[in-house]
Amino acid sequence: MRQEPIPKPSEPMQFRAIGLLRGRYIRSEDQLTRGHLLMEDGSKIDALILGRVISLVKNHMDLVAEHLWVVYPRTDDRTKQLQVQVMGIWEPETLQNRPPVLESNTDGTLRAVPPKSPVVSSQDLPDDYFSIRGEVVYQSGDKAQIAVKIKQVSRRDTKKSRAFKLQLQGVLEDKALHQFWDFKAQRQGDILVIQSAEFVAKMPPKRKKKKPKWTGRSGPITMPTPASGEGRSVGKPIRRDRPVTAAPSPANPADETHTP
């Protein structure tokens, strides 16, 4: 097995949104972690460098040259344009020239650790390629637009997850709403265009939230009677031989309702 930046999914319904972009990273004037990727076609993609890559970019990468960046795509809520979060750089032919990792032998000497498996060269990987896997939540044939919901599991707590929507351009022949699909997409300008799509499965039905049960006082409520002061159950109907009428109250103009 060769090491690749975008491995095959580990399970059929694994959510994913990851891609490869080749270009130059142009940092902003005030921050290293914020800037944009300048592509060969002149497109500028807003980019954010994630924490795990900052040291690598700062100390080992020549930002004047082009590199193959491993990115997480996002859709800007306001402009609907492509944004990326840089999570890695795939350039083994350059990074492997750095000093090898050393481990201690049982006798105290050091040895270099060889790579566990061959690594795919950056020159053998396609540019502007994206793998998108998730639930289709919007589909418009007229606009040729599709929105895919991606669930992102927290690294600290695997039971917690948050979701975001990624917009793709393309048309599906079938009704794909609330279905899990595997998309292969390509960047064209600042949008992702579907190259191929494969149906995976229908999404499981959402669990309905149970209504909270009323928890009141158990048993009938008793009230004292004027005659004896003993308790009488309100839960039982009161038998009356004659209709009960209320004594009329004196007229009060403040109690009247005027209809305009």
Rank of each mutant, 00 (worst) to 15 (best):
I54W: 11
K236N: 07
S161E: 09
V53K: 06
W90N: 13
E11F: 13
P220D: 08
L38Y: 15
Q139H: 03
S104E: 11
D41S: 03
V86I: 15
N97E: 13
T94H: 01
K175I: 01
P220N: 05
L166V: 04
F164Q: 12
D41G: 05
Y129M: 13
V200D: 01
G19A: 11
I132H: 11
V136D: 01
R98Y: 11
Q186Y: 01
P9W: 08
V120P: 00
H67R: 12
D142Q: 10
K44H: 07
D62V: 01
V171I: 13
R207H: 04
D107I: 10
Q169F: 09
R162A: 08
I49C: 10
I191E: 06
Q188E: 14
Y138H: 11
K160N: 05
Q96T: 07
L95G: 01
S104K: 13
S43H: 02
K211Q: 09
R133V: 00
V70W: 01
P5H: 12
A176R: 06
S43P: 06
E66Q: 12
V64E: 15
L172Y: 12
K116S: 02
E256V: 09
L63I: 13
T75A: 04
R22C: 08
I150P: 05
M1W: 02
E256Q: 09
N59W: 15
E11G: 09
V148T: 10
D77R: 03
N59Q: 13
R240E: 06
V137K: 06
S218C: 05
R78F: 09
P220L: 01
G219D: 00
S117I: 05
T215D: 08
